[in-house]
Simulated assay, not measured.
Amino acid sequence: MIVIVHAVVSLGMLVVLPLGLRLVSSGTTLRRWWWVAAVPGVLSLWLPRGPVSITLASIYFAGTGVLAIVGLFAAWRVLGEGRTGKAVAIATAFGTPAIAALALVAERASYPLFGFKLSVLSLTVAHFHFAGFAAALVAFLVAGAVPGKAADLASYSVPVGTFVVLLGFFVGDWLELVGAAILTAGMWLVGWCLLRLRAGADRLTRVLLATSGGVLAATMVLALSWALGHVVDTPYLPIEWMAATHGIANALGFALCGLLAFRRLDLAHDANKADPVAA
């Protein structure tokens, strides 16, 4: 399982995060030096636990700290436009990698942070790169691209669900279930908005949007059943299978395809503006 988790996190650090930063103007400068933090972060995953991996993970943690600060300024600018949901979403997207990085430092140091097992800390690293950064960023993007209440509600419910799940780690399984339910509802709204964006897009972009939105229909059921199974006696997948199904599908199917689709939409929009015939 740990190989799968490390591979997914590496994808998040080296591909998903830089791609996401490219899609928001506030991340342009940050993207240029992101590799200074991301490469040490990835190396720390694959090296044995100890002083070297701790140092590399700490460099990554410092980079995510800068990202979180940039996110606060970005949120403040968006808030000035009167879009509170978008501000919450962008602050969440830019802030949650720091939670992941803190868990990474503790896991590389073999330190059970807040009493959590090292395996739980490893999963936390993956969770907050995708259920944190990628999910909140896509919620931010759909709120700016899709008119209507569904997109606005998603920009609130995804961040709220993410942080209620985090709080549930400390309070109890019942609160984690509440957070999973809120997050699932928010992600389904995101998926619906992604499907609506297909109109007018080229074929490959439509496929990417359909894949990203469609994957959420299944993967969030798995997340909800996992949380429910820890509160009442209902079946749920073991953690190894959750990593291999829910984790990989969300990383590749939702996050990567969704952000690639938005990148293609951005490029098409720029081309139309530059082409007087298309305009």
Results as ranks from 00 to 15, higher is better:
L137W: 11
F140M: 01
D152Y: 02
G115Y: 01
F262P: 00
S10H: 01
L177I: 02
M187G: 14
P147K: 01
I90T: 04
W188V: 11
L153E: 00
E176N: 10
S212N: 07
D270L: 12
A57R: 05
L43A: 15
R203K: 15
V165I: 15
T245K: 04
V138W: 03
A68N: 10
L189N: 05
F114D: 08
A103Y: 03
T84C: 04
A243E: 01
L189D: 03
L252F: 15
A227W: 10
F94H: 13
L195W: 14
H246N: 03
T245A: 04
A274Q: 06
F128L: 03
G161V: 11
A68C: 12
P18V: 11
T55Y: 08
S225L: 15
F130C: 01
S10L: 02
V5Y: 05
L183R: 04
S10R: 06
L175H: 03
L256Y: 11
V9W: 01
F169V: 00
F170D: 02
G85V: 13
A38F: 13
L228V: 00
T211R: 10
G144T: 02
A210V: 12
A75R: 03
L194E: 13
G12L: 04
V165R: 11
N250W: 08
D202W: 03
T92Q: 10
P159I: 07
E240Q: 07
A134C: 10
V42I: 08
D173W: 11
A103L: 08
G168K: 04
L195K: 06
G132H: 06
E107N: 14
V39W: 03
P40V: 12
L166E: 06
G95A: 15
W35I: 12
R31N: 15
A7H: 00
A101N: 12
I4P: 01
R108Q: 15
A210P: 01
M187Q: 10
G186S: 03
V24Y: 08
A143H: 04
P147Q: 07
V15H: 09
A268Y: 06
I59H: 03
A251Q: 08
A126P: 05
R108A: 09
V8E: 15
A185T: 12
